[in-house]
Amino acid sequence: MTNSDGQLYTIEGFAAALIMLMTAYLVVNATSVYTAGDTHISDMQLEALGSDALNMMGTPTNTTMDVIGTSPLRTIIENDDAITFKTMFLNLTNNRTGLPPDYISRIGSTMDFIQFNASYTCRDLSNNVISTTPISYSRNLTGGEHTVRATKWVIVNEGVCGNGIQHRAVLVEVLMWRD
């Protein structure tokens, strides 16, 4: 004869097991989505930061510059001034309030969390072919970095792409990544 005692406990056991399995599934699932969402948020922030930095570099710093229509970024491209670009860009993106964690060993350093690789692209007048010229970089790209791109249009008075000196539009592109 079958004993039918404790049927309610059995049903409760099944129900509890189902609920716990569902909960565990949802929690595990949530952590896997978290990485993707997190990546997008930091990408967005890094891209906004880079665009702002380039925008500041493309703005004349005083009225004398403004009258002749130039800006730090334009001067950098016209003079192939890699060092000024590097200093200015790293300052704009990496400087923060307070002392960097490595300030004892490297006095005068910034935190250097954001690395960059900058270049500009121009058009050859004779055949419409575009080519890219490096401006400056803080570290070599190895291919494993997760980079975002920030861009800025600049009008320069320079013989870009092998053409004669005249006013030309070039596109400055900066790849940025956190290190």
Partner: peptide, 25 residues
């Protein structure tokens, strides 16, 4: 049952909260 269901809904909240930033970004 009550405790189990409350855990279930808490898990649901955690699950959904992480997706919010993704769509915005």
């Amino acid at each position: 049952f009550l405790v189990s269901f409350s855990f279930f809904f808490l898990a649901l909240v955690i699950n959904q909260s992480t997706v919010v930033g993704q769509t915005t970004a």
